[in-house]
């Protein structure tokens, strides 16, 4: 715990004349669950997209420090696949699974950036490639067992239930062996039972030492899971602290519920 692995300073993103992110500051420590909340349109998903290389931020710095190392790498300007290679994996708000592939294959895709067989390896299938394939399957299977989808490994991803698809997205992201897991509204559209299972799953992953950055609207989930919470509104950080502090923070209440107009 407590060594910072992600440090973001002055992150700004402009879309034409609209400033979606305004000098955002955020940091995540190793082993922590950090939540990012804010009203709709606050810029949370834009922030994720800047972080993972889908958008190129206008200004600011994103530094990732692998745990146990003192050297940090800048993620700014990297392509999404390079960001993933550096150890940052994400899930999507609207589920983006490979629907025509099996559940196991979806997770195996996550192993792609940690393996290296290429054309010749694929054609001649030498010992190294066969070994690598074996390890990919074994590791993917292990992850599927962790999220409780092992019994459906050979189903098509599109045939899974909604909650299972969400879990599969998490499994796929975990397969890339990230230092930091980014979850974009994992509980969106889930029923209370599924949310409860998700809560348990995130706790289990976190217990393995996985650091997690979470965007979520379900306040019950956020308050129970997070070590620290960042609150955003209009692209700016408006509050930051432990769940109990956030609950009573006047700026947060104002952002969510509006201001009194009795004056």
């Amino acid at each position: 715990m407590n060594s910072p692995i992600l440090k973001i300073s002055g992150l700004t993103m402009d879309f034409g004349g609209i400033r979606a992110l305004n000098r955002l500051e955020l940091d995540v420590n190793s082993g922590e669950i950090v939540a990012l909340i804010g009203p709709n349109g606050a810029g949370k998903t834009t922030f994720f997209n800047c972080l993972t290389g889908i958008y190129l931020p206008t200004a600011g710095e994103i530094l990732l420090t692998p745990p146990g190392s003192s050297k940090s790498v800048s993620l700014k300007g990297l392509k999404p696949n390079q960001v993933t290679e550096k150890g940052l994996a994400r899930t999507f708000q609207n589920i983006r699974l490979f629907s025509q592939m099996t559940v196991l294959e979806n997770v195996m895709i996550g192993r792609h950036c940690r393996t290296k067989a290429f054309i010749l390896g694929a054609i001649f299938r030498n010992a190294a490639t066969r070994n690598e394939e074996k390890q990919i399957v074994a590791k993917s299977y292990e992850i599927l067992e962790k999220v409780g989808l092992a019994h459906q490994a050979n189903e098509f991803a599109k045939n899974l239930s909604y909650g299972a698809q969400r879990r599969l997205e998490i499994a796929r992201a975990l397969a890339t062996e990230p230092f930091l897991l980014l979850l974009d509204e994992p509980a969106a559209g889930m029923n209370p039972q599924e949310t409860l299972e998700l809560d348990r799953l995130i706790r289990e992953i976190s217990a393995d030492g996985q650091s997690i950055l979470l965007i979520e609207h379900d306040m019950k989930l956020v308050m129970s899971l997070s070590d620290r919470i960042f609150v955003m509104d209009y692209g700016k950080k408006i509050a930051h602290g432990k769940p109990a502090e956030i609950r009573s923070n006047p700026a947060v209440i104002k952002a969510y519920l509006g201001e009194d107009v009795d004056a």
Binding site: K79, P80, T84, A89, R90, S99, H112, R114
Partner: peptide, 13 residues
């Protein structure tokens, strides 16, 4: 199946 998800999983498009 999905170009964006594919890149996000670390595949060089």
């Amino acid at each position: 199946e999905d170009e964006i998800a594919c890149q996000a999983m670390g595949i060089d498009k």
